[in-house]
Computed example of a mutant assay.
Amino acid sequence: MRRRTVMAQHAASSREPSRQDRPGYHDPLAGIGGAAPAQSALTLRLVLAVVGLVFATCGVIAFILIQAPTWVIVLFVLVGLTAVVDIIVVTRRKLRGESG
């Protein structure tokens, strides 16, 4: 009977969030002064990345049509690639269950 109790306690303790999962983990002054823990704005970051990707794509198309200098087109392609990478990172974080 004692063994089941120990196993049940271990199972219950293994489901508790680790110290890193708690709000304010990276804030050394968490709980002092009544400040609420910071929350990530992943949805806002995702929306801004999508908007950046749309503008970069439109910019690349427009600059190709007006035969702009190559460096301008490359610059907009780099902005678009940055937006794609950010979309991938934010999507992975949201799928892992991070709030935001």
Rank of each mutant, 00 (worst) to 15 (best):
M1A: 12
M1L: 08
R2W: 09
R3F: 14
R4Y: 11
T5E: 14
T5V: 11
V6M: 10
Q9T: 12
H10F: 11
A11R: 15
A12E: 15
A12R: 14
R15V: 01
E16T: 05
P17N: 05
P17R: 11
P17V: 04
S18F: 06
Q20G: 05
P23K: 04
G24K: 03
G24V: 00
Y25L: 00
D27L: 04
L29P: 00
L29K: 06
A30R: 09
G31Q: 08
I32Q: 08
G33R: 07
G34D: 01
A35N: 05
A35L: 08
A36L: 13
A36K: 09
P37S: 01
Q39L: 11
S40K: 13
L48N: 15
A49F: 08
G52Q: 01
G52T: 00
G52S: 01
V54S: 04
A56M: 04
T57S: 09
G59P: 00
F63S: 04
L65W: 06
I66D: 07
I66H: 03
I66Y: 02
A68T: 07
T70F: 10
T70E: 14
T70N: 15
V72C: 04
I73Y: 07
V74A: 11
L75Q: 05
L78T: 00
L78C: 10
T82N: 11
T82M: 08
A83S: 12
A83G: 02
V84G: 02
V84M: 10
V85M: 12
D86A: 12
D86T: 09
I87E: 02
I87P: 01
V90K: 01
R92A: 11
L95Q: 15
G97M: 08
E98F: 13
G100Y: 14
G100V: 13
